[in-house]
């Protein structure tokens, strides 16, 4: 089984039997889109809520750019039309003493808003809290396997 890792601020498209991973997800948010019938999907490792494309050489740094782009890529892959479902996870706050506003929470809010704008339904969510996640995405069934210090969650 081919496995590729989606680094911070990156996104990838994959098809069964391939799987994608995100290792060490903390305050960033992972957005998975998939099309059940063709077993095709995409995963974005989004770093921040908002920004402009010129500010980074990476395609998935900002939720407002990454999510529409990921959607378009998945659509392209499946021939332009089809019902696409979404799952999101991440957005934690790893240290209580971390100053300022809760950036993870803002990432999750931004992801929800962008998905809503595109009319994409969120069918699974594991966000927030104070621990990190190692994520595996299987487009074959749209499942996310989330491993953390607290155990394994299947989404």
């Amino acid at each position: 089984m081919k496995k590729r890792n989606v680094g911070i601020a990156e996104m990838m498209i994959c098809r069964q039997p391939e799987v994608l991973t995100i290792l060490g997800l903390g305050s960033c948010v992972a957005v998975a889109l998939y099309h059940e019938r063709t077993k095709t999907g995409g995963l974005a490792h989004v770093m921040l809520p908002k920004g402009s494309a010129q500010k980074s050489s990476r395609p998935a740094k900002y939720a407002n750019i990454a999510i529409p782009a990921l959607h378009e890529k998945v659509l392209e892959e499946i021939g332009g039309k089809g019902r696409i479902a979404a799952k999101i996870c991440g957005g934690s706050k790893m240290f209580k003493s971390a100053a300022g506003f809760h950036i993870g929470e803002h990432n999750v809010t931004a992801a929800r808003e962008e998905l809503a704008k595109l009319g994409l339904k969120i069918v699974g969510e594991d966000c927030g809290s104070d621990y990190g996640r190692n994520v595996t995405f299987t487009p074959e069934n749209g499942k996310l396997i989330i491993r953390s210090v607290n155990g394994v969650t299947l989404l």
Binding site: L23, M94, R133, V149
Partner: peptide, 22 residues
């Protein structure tokens, strides 16, 4: 500021720092 420790996935701990700086 006073230090805080955690046992967790290294990449996730690192993300906290990077997003703070961002």
């Amino acid at each position: 500021t006073p230090s805080e420790s955690a046992r967790d996935i290294l990449g996730a701990l690192l993300q906290q720092v990077l997003l703070d700086i961002s």
